[in-house]
Design a protein around this nucleic acid. Structure first.
Length: 440
DNA sequence: CCTTAGGGTTCG
């Protein structure tokens, strides 16, 4: 059998394998079987540098995964050992994530089988034994598995070839993957249906906007967007036409990654997915979008501090929750601080002492810095669930100047009105957020 | 169940 080293480039039609070859499942390999007319196929998840054996023979080793049997619990890779000229050629053209096909391979049973999910055999491939190797791009397969915890030795990944659609190429009724810069968003809120809802408007270098309605019963499954300018990657979002415009909506397998959109910031995806793909190619995309966004997205000015508030305005406040209290059915009180002092006298919402949650001593210590924010209607339920001490960003707080009958001077009131216009809402920030660190 | 929202400030 002649040696064939075949690279099928993207876009070219696939060259069929010789018809006499039959596919053998990676799980079914056994030593001693006649594999002359069989081939195996897998995705390259790991490869080692080309080396030379003691006798000068080139040697190249890679690990294959069966794309039909990928799961986080089952590590079913099989080692492929390639010798001679074929090793040298493979080392040049094979990349992580590509589909590797070998015909005319030799199955060698491993002396000691450890029951850790590893394959009981390895494969040997060389020109001398009549092997043929085909390499092609991997079609879209699911999954990659950076183990989020535990044994790092088993950390490996499979590169699926996801295709990302620019926002100006979206078509009604399709399910696509896409990247976008957040131009507007509503932090997740409790919808009138059964799920949390987050509305996100994206834009990309095609300058087309896409508003997405994202729903999920699990708050954590919605994108963790903290500010305009964040960059998101959506997988499997459904595109529909609504009022003459394309609209995105969550479909069954929706998943998202969110990144800080600041040029030069660390590229750390925010996601609830334990399993996701993220490779060099994605890094590059994020960096390019950051640079584009820097000159094409107007990020709302520097974050407002309590020390800088004006009587009649809407603003976003990054703060820490130090107290909360039930007020009535349609409003709820949050006591927060951001380390700065509001220059105006602030409104104190009267509540019964028994309804106030929070460290009394701390509340007293911080009494000149803490402000009362009254939240209404749809925000009440979310506000009730917030934990004392957590870091929040409250979007579109309204400041109002008022004076009570028993006061000589006017005070300033902080309201988070009902509804979600202009992204009005409450988001919880992780302690790792740069704005939270600044707060501390 | 197969919706919810479909960006564009409350009016307490």
């Amino acid at each position: 059998m002649p040696v064939q080293l075949l690279k099928i480039a993207k876009g070219q039609s696939e060259i069929p394998l010789p018809s006499h070859l039959q596919k053998e499942n990676l799980q079914n390999l056994q030593e001693g079987c006649d594999n002359t007319n069989k081939y195996i196929q897998g995705i390259v998840t790991l490869s080692y540098p080309l080396t030379k054996l003691g006798d000068g023979t080139d040697f190249f080793k890679l690990v294959l995964q069966d794309p039909d049997n990928l799961s986080s619990r089952q590590i079913n890779g099989i080692n492929v050992l390639i010798y001679g000229k074929m090793a040298e050629d493979c080392a040049k053209i094979i990349h992580h994530g590509e589909t590797f096909i070998a015909a005319g391979f030799k199955v060698i049973k491993l002396p000691t089988v450890i029951d850790d999910g590893r394959h009981g055999c390895h494969l040997e491939v060389s020109e001398e034994t009549g092997s043929a190797i085909y390499v092609r791009e991997t079609e879209m397969v699911q999954i990659i598995l950076p183990c989020s915890s535990g044994d790092k030795a088993h950390l490996f990944s499979v590169a699926p070839k996801y295709v990302y659609t620019p926002l100006n190429h979206l078509k009604d009724g399709t399910i696509v993957n896409l990247y976008g810069v957040v131009k507007f968003f509503k932090p997740p809120y409790i919808s009138k249906g059964t799920d949390y809802c987050s509305v996100v408007t994206l834009v990309d270098p095609s300058n087309v906007k896409l508003t997405c309605n994202l729903f999920n019963g699990n708050l954590d499954s919605l994108p963790k967007i903290y500010k305009v300018g964040d960059i998101v990657r959506f997988h499997r979002i459904k595109i529909r036409e609504y009022n003459g415009q394309m609209q995105g909506i969550t479909s069954g397998g929706f998943a998202s990654l969110t990144f800080d959109g600041t040029v030069g910031a660390p590229i750390v995806p925010r996601t609830s997915s334990k399993v996701y793909t993220f490779m060099d190619e994605e890094h590059k995309t994020i960096e390019e979008l950051r640079i584009w966004a820097a000159s094409n997205i107007s990020v709302s000015g520097p974050a407002a501090k309590l020390s800088g508030v004006q009587p009649m305005q809407f603003f976003d406040l990054t703060c820490q929750l130090v107290g909360k209290a039930k007020v009535d059915g349609s409003s709820f009180l949050l006591k927060v601080w951001d380390g700065t002092k509001c220059p105006y006298p602030t409104w104190k919402v009267p509540v019964e002492a028994k309804d106030l949650e929070g460290d009394k001593v701390l509340l007293r210590q911080l009494r000149d810095l803490v402000v009362d924010i009254l939240v209404y209607d749809n925000h009440v339920q979310l506000a009730e669930s917030l934990e004392i001490g957590s870091f929040l960003r409250i979007y579109s707080i309204h400041t109002k100047q008022a004076s009570a009958d028993n006061e000589d001077v006017s005070h300033i009131e902080f309201h988070l009105h009902g509804g979600t216009c202009y992204g009005r809402g409450i988001g919880v920030l992780p302690e790792s957020n740069p704005d939270v660190r600044e707060l501390k």
